[in-house]
Nucleic acid binder design. Structure first.
Length: 262
DNA sequence: AGTACCACCTGACGGC
DNA sequence: TGCCGTCAGGTGGTAC
């Protein structure tokens, strides 16, 4: 699930339900998702409250005390869900933050690819990881400048979190579809105008997704995301959607429409 | 620098 | 209904 819009939705959910409430208890149901020991996590979170949140790319940071934050990442199947005590936590809940007010925030991860870690500050952490600017914060000029000299395939470049933070498999396909660019195009073969167009499409797509709560079913019918299936009819021409591998990831595209530099 | 492949883990889904 | 293969919105490591 979680690309930039999904994590943005989780951030808003946390902000609306769980901010400024003291954590009474941290329940670890599967420590596979913890980078620290349960004891370390508890030590930094128990009797503290989530003061503010920050999203960078697909990462959610939660401020717990001075110069101590939680880093949450969600892998391919993560989510956050607030529920009230007395109710069952959602399926695949791996950790629960119980608040004093009888509410609780569940960290959900079916495949356990996600992680929770106590860190110092988001800035230090991001620098160490080498992540690029968040896709929604990046300027058009920086976008063009960073991509223009890359020699990798455009889809791989878009998904590289060290280049731009936040784009994943589904939205990379969407951007390239709307820009009519073949996913295997060498990035440095794109013109500045094509890169600028790609940037505009990226912003519009993420804005649309954010407005629709990252729900693919609510996205416009002209979007590829509602037709991500082999053999499906392209919403823009009579062609059929094809599936290929790019950078090891399944890639859906329209061979009729996406002919730029292919 | 770029790519291919594997690993992590737990399913959901379609074909027979 | 059951078994089996394939796929899955991410990332990190290795090897070439």
């Amino acid at each position: 699930m979680p690309e930039l819009p999904d994590v943005e939705r989780m951030k808003q959910h946390l902000d609306e339900t769980s901010l400024h409430k003291e954590v009474k208890r941290v329940e670890v149901k599967d420590k596979a998702v913890l980078d620290n020991s349960p004891q370390t996590l508890r030590r930094h979170v128990k009797n503290h409250s989530f003061d503010k949140t920050k999203r960078v790319g697909k990462n959610l940071f939660v401020d717990i005390e001075s110069d101590r934050w939680l880093w949450m990442h969600f892998g391919m199947t993560g989510d956050l869900k607030y529920f009230t005590n007395g109710n069952e936590p959602p399926k695949y809940t791996r950790a629960v933050f119980h608040f004093h007010d009888k509410g609780a925030l569940a960290y959900i991860s079916r495949r356990k690819f996600g992680s929770i870690q106590v860190i110092e500050t988001p800035k230090k952490f991001i620098d160490k990881k080498g992540w690029g600017e968040d896709a929604m914060n990046m300027s058009k000029e920086d976008f063009v400048e960073i991509l223009r000299n890359k020699r990798s395939m455009i889809k791989s470049a878009l998904m590289d979190q060290k280049v731009i933070a936040g784009i994943g498999n589904v939205y990379a396909d969407e951007m390239l579809y709307q820009s009519r660019i073949h996913p295997k195009t060498k990035t440095n073969e794109l013109s500045n105008d094509q890169l600028k167009d790609l940037y505009s499409k990226m912003k519009r797509i993420f804005r649309t997704a954010n407005n629709n709560n990252a729900d693919a079913k609510e996205m416009p019918k002209r979007y590829l995301i509602t037709h991500r299936k082999e053999g499906e009819e392209c919403p823009d021409c009579s062609g059929e959607i094809e599936r290929i591998k790019v950078g090891g990831r399944s890639t859906y595209f329209c061979p009729e429409c996406q002919t730029v530099n292919s």
